[in-house]
Design a protein around this nucleic acid. Sequence first.
RNA 1: GCGCAGGUGGCAGAGCGGUCAAUUGCACCAGACUGUAAAUCUGGCGCCCCACGGGCUACGAAGGUUCGAAUCCUUCCCUGCGCA
Length: 378
Amino acid sequence: MIGFKIIKKSKLSKARLGVLKTPHGEIETPAFVGVATQATIKILTTEEVLKTKTQILIANTYHLHQRPGEHIVAKSGGVHKFMNWPGALMTDSGGFQVFSLGFGSDHGVGKILKEKKDIVVKADMQPQKMRITEDGVHFRSPIDGREIFIGPKESIRIQEKLGADIIFAFDECTSPVADYEYTKRSLRKSHRWAKQCLEYQKTNQALFGITQGGKFKDLRIESAKFIGSLPFAGFGIGGEFGNDKKKMAAMIRWVVRELPENKPRHLLGIGHPEDIPKIIKEGIDTFDCIAPTHYARRGVAFTSEGRLDMNRRTFLQDKKPLDNSCDCTTCSNYSRSYITHLFKAKEITGMHLLTFHNLYFFNSLVAGIREKIKKGKI
RNA sequence: GCGCAGGUGGCAGAGCGGUCAAUUGCACCAGACUGUAAAUCUGGCGCCCCACGGGCUACGAAGGUUCGAAUCCUUCCCUGCGCA
């Protein structure tokens, strides 16, 4: 089980400083959660990940169920031992894949809409590659095409075998192009599944419920009230955030207000650098985002100057580190020129150096915010 | 010196009488990526302009044939291979 202690509440915002105690160590919150979907931070060894100031990782139920299978992981003694990660771990429930492999893939959209789409997901519609029923989701494996059914029970069973410290209830992340009726029906289903997850769970892992409701205020509030009233160890805030990122903070506010004060809140899948201060000010304790790792493989460095695309030829002439104000091993030892050369030459070391830096940068950014909360500046 | 093959946009390499400012790949430029099926995707890429249209200069060089040529002919220059 976990314990959560709030050390300080900001007087300027909803931000709070806390300690999340897990069987694998204490996490200072607010904290960034590194995304290790396939039980790896792509390109880094776990020993390296530890050096990026990463405190906690999130792996994925759907992916690990499909490959290598949770029994393989269980035979190694759980994900921690399997991947040699001594720190805290979460597993996502597979609920996001209902969206990302479903309507998200069908319509080419993410959980924040970037451009206007004509498509609308209406009640009773089904994604092309899966079937969502009242009991769960029939996925079609992108690896070998076989059908994989995951419902609340299956998700919990898998997550129990994986053995992370914190697990999530199975839900459906709805699409930003879903209409009110679809989102409402989906919400009710996710709520029912949430209760079932609580009933099915046998281990003493910390089970977090996930609130949904999309961009609709009444649904967001309804979901937060309902999920918040259940005996979860903590809460995830899931779902889509419409087409205007500026409204994200307000949407989080609708939800956080309804959640129990003394339990941890995890914002699922959000956290570009510009979002981080905003979500923390809304009372988010932990959050995960693929940005630092995903963008690193595209050659993008996150720095105090903003994003730098290391594929750009001009950086070949630049002998400065990625970020002058960063003391990670990448910035201490390597130049922009060298990293750009590595990307030009398609040498994986470039991705390695960027992945390391980006994670370190995100963790440092959050550490800086913790410091500001401590000093009463945020 | 003779014979054969060939010279196309930054590079590689299509095209072989009109639909070609010229397929495609690389490079280059710009953009995207937020609970990771993705080390990916999208757009641009001769010059100029009152730019979902128009003008100019282009396929080694110079001539020629033709209504019309990167595409056919002649000469020249250059490259590779073979023979001397």
